[in-house]
Write a protein that binds this DNA or RNA. Structure first.
Length: 288
DNA sequence: AGCCAGGTCTGCG
DNA sequence: CGCAGACATGGC
């Protein structure tokens, strides 16, 4: 792994908090080991560390790394565009340098099918087990790492092996998505070309993908920054800081979640997804 | 034991 | 449409 080692000097006006970015719940396969963040991107192991404005890497090219971390994106300008009230202002201050990654849509699709009604540590375990069981071992690494499984490898998997990954009721959805993507490899790249509402409804046609997962896949897998995923935490934050349920409305409910989503998009604008991620990142300090 | 976790689906009115 | 309950699993 000699090729692909180097250091990037981060610009002072383009902040990055590598640890927060890799651990905030948008990616599930990064591990901190002996001062380095280690993760498999594509079929290679990437090792990253940040010391102030120095970003040292081993594995990617500088170009691939910059794209993955969205270092080409003007973060202060994005944050200025969503910085419209004291609550988000506080979250922006708390999560300075958090960036939304550019990740593989297939991996994100499966990850957020797995992410329904569970917690982040368990999502990480499910994804790790899937990779260990169905991915390819990355050669020549001190610690065992595997690539994320291909659609084919998951689709062709024996049910007993898949069951051993302990996905619970998500298992059938994962198998179904794998079969569909293996059968129609153009479907995920095709979504990137669609207008947001059509992209969203295509994602919703996958079993196991509802409104929340679809918005996460759009935000994290397709970098559609206007997506505003509403999960339990965002719901709590929005109800405690921004809006009250309509009189007589049941909460939680899909109808109320639609209101929250519409409010988020209208209030924060074209990069509402960044606002969502900063609120999520600062969630512990934003709920009563 | 019971509730919660980055929800979604089904069956019913 | 809109609502209730079910759904696997694991931690607290």
């Amino acid at each position: 792994m000699l090729p692909g080692m180097g250091t990037i000097r981060l610009r002072e006006d383009q902040p990055l908090d590598l640890s927060l970015t890799l651990s905030c719940g948008q990616a599930f396969r990064w591990e901190e080991r002996e001062g380095w963040w280690e993760g498999v991107v594509g079929d290679r192991l990437w090792r990253l560390r940040q010391e102030g404005d120095r970003l040292t890497y081993d594995g990617p090219t500088a170009r691939a790394l910059g794209s993955y971390l969205a270092l080409d994106e003007d973060l202060p300008a994005i944050l200025a565009s969503v910085d419209r009230d004291p609550v988000i202002h506080r979250a922006i201050g708390a999560c300075r340098g958090l960036r939304i990654l550019r990740q593989d849509p297939w991996e994100i699709l499966i990850s957020f099918i797995c992410a329904t009604n569970t917690n982040i540590p368990r999502i990480r375990r499910m994804i790790a087990t899937l990779a260990q069981t169905f991915g390819d071992r990355v050669p020549d690494t001190p610690h065992p790492y595997s690539s994320f499984p291909t659609p084919e490898s998951l689709a062709d998997s024996g049910r007993d092996q898949l069951a051993a990954c302990r996905l619970g009721y998500r298992e059938g959805s994962v198998a179904g998505a794998a079969a569909r993507v293996a059968e129609n490899p153009a479907i995920l790249p095709g979504i990137a070309k669609l207008p947001l509402d059509e992209a969203r409804s295509t994602l919703l046609s996958f079993r196991g993908v509802g409104p929340k997962a679809a918005d996460c896949i759009l935000l994290f897998g397709y970098h559609r920054l206007e997506s505003f995923p509403v999960d339990v935490w965002i719901r709590r934050i929005m109800y405690s800081q921004y809006l009250k349920p309509l009189p007589g409305a049941r909460v939680p409910s899909e109808k109320e979640d639609r209101r929250i989503r519409a409010f988020g998009r209208a209030h924060f604008g074209a990069c509402a997804g960044y606002a969502q991620e900063y609120l999520f990142g600062a969630r512990e300090s934003l709920i009563p």
